[in-house]
């Protein structure tokens, strides 16, 4: 290692630490603000207090929004894992023409402008006379989770040795049983990662959902932005701090069981 190498390495470390601080800064601000006693966002807070955590109960519609978002994220992620696994196997294992194009197509909704996808879907659903807001949201959220799942699974399956399935079949298993008994446990980390990222993306989606909601069905990000515009007080910071704690717990469990490195592999 030459001197220049060492300078490069040290510089990359300094930037990495700065990057971590930069990334965590908005989270830190959120947590600090959530413990303030004042109704405006002054930092540092004049006094510490838990009043915004207590006020969460009284926020009308917040619990419903959380429940709706959790419901949509869970169902769309689960459905996407099933459909996505089948489609990813087809792309990785199949022999039919156009597989490359198919792989690009199934991941492409990730890179399309959310508002445009949302409005196009809304107009299409109206055209065919489909008016149920909840079902529309579910259909829209699967457009977020399916590509996320596909992206991770395509990468993981490209590295999976499919001859293991053939081996299980020569030992007498059916194709379906071989997939369940051999491939799924082998790719468990990829499923976990795919599921987690898809779930978070669904929970956080604003642009597609905004066109598909109605007065009774409002997802969490939509409700939060509405609160911020109407009556911004630190209760949202309190709720977000709760979500941060929840993810922290998931991450600690994830790092103990799967390893963080495996989790970001997708």
């Amino acid at each position: 290692m030459t001197r220049t190498d060492r300078i490069f390495e040290r510089a990359s470390w300094i930037i990495a630490v700065a990057c971590a601080v930069f990334l965590l800064l908005p989270l830190l601000i959120t947590v600090l603000v959530s413990f303030t006693s004042s109704a405006v966002y002054t930092l540092p807070p004049p006094e510490w207090s838990l009043r915004w955590y207590e006020s969460l109960e009284r926020r009308s519609g917040l619990a419903e929004a959380v429940a709706l978002s959790l419901n949509l994220a869970l169902i769309s992620t689960a459905a996407s894992l099933v459909i996505g696994t089948a489609a990813a196997m087809a792309v990785v294992q199949g022999q039919f023409p156009g597989r490359e194009a198919m792989a690009t197509f199934v991941v492409s909704p990730l890179m399309m402008p959310g508002l445009v996808v949302g409005v196009a879907l809304l107009q299409f659903l109206r055209e065919i006379g489909f008016r149920d807001a909840y079902a529309g949201l579910l259909v829209g959220h699967m457009l977020i989770t399916l590509p996320f799942v596909m992206r991770t699974l395509l990468a993981a399956m490209a590295a999976f040795d499919f001859s293991l399935i053939d081996a299980a079949r020569t030992l007498g298993m059916s194709y379906g049983r071989a997939v369940v008994a051999v491939m799924i446990p082998n790719l468990a980390p990829a499923f976990l990662t795919a599921g987690l990222f898809a779930f978070l993306a669904s929970m956080d989606n604003y642009p597609i959902s905004i066109f598909l909601t109605d007065a009774r069905n409002k997802t969490l990000p939509i409700k939060m932005l509405q609160y911020l515009e109407e009556q911004p007080d630190p209760s949202l910071a309190a709720m977000s701090s709760g979500l941060i704690m929840l993810t922290l717990i998931v991450l600690i469990i994830g790092s103990r069981t799967v390893g963080l490195n495996k989790m970001v592999q997708g």
Binding site: C19, A20, L23, L24, P26, L27, T30, F197, L200, M203, D204, Y206, L220, P221, M224, L225, L228, L236, A237, S240, L243, I244, L246, T247, L248, V250, L251, S255, L260, N261, M263, V264
Partner: peptide, 15 residues
Amino acid sequence: LAAMILPLSVGVVVK
């Protein structure tokens, strides 16, 4: 790695 993943848990609205 945690610094990379943790911010994903907080919605864009909050950040």
